[in-house]
């Protein structure tokens, strides 16, 4: 990553951020919510697709660039979109 990309990323905050806690899954700068149910949530990032599976999954926060999922998370799977 060159200096220009660093500056752009700093100014526009374009990097994806994913955080995983015991019962929470947080993603920043997601692109779209593909699908969700209480057992499975699929979220698209710019270059990746994340699939969260578990029990009693609920969305506790959903804004333009933030998504927070709560519940008993069993598995988080991430794939590059061009792999599909």
């Amino acid at each position: 990553m060159n200096i220009k990309d660093n500056i752009i990323n700093y100014l526009y905050d374009k990097n994806d951020v994913i955080c995983l806690y015991d019962d929470y899954f947080y993603v920043y700068n997601y692109k779209s919510l593909d699908s969700f149910s209480d057992k499975r949530v699929v979220v698209d990032l710019t270059t990746k697709k994340i699939t969260i599976t578990g029990e009693s999954l609920i969305i506790v926060r959903i804004t333009d660039n933030e998504l927070m999922i709560s519940g008993s998370i069993a598995k988080v799977e991430m794939k590059k979109i061009n792999e599909r």
Binding site: S37, D38, I58, I59, V60, R61, I62, T63, D64
Partner: peptide
């Protein structure tokens, strides 16, 4: 229903800052 509501709000591009079930 929560799923329906969240989908509805998401499609309307409305930010949901917190959901208390």
């Amino acid at each position: 229903d929560a799923h329906y509501t969240i989908k509805y709000l998401y499609r309307k591009h409305l930010n949901v800052y917190n959901v208390e079930y």
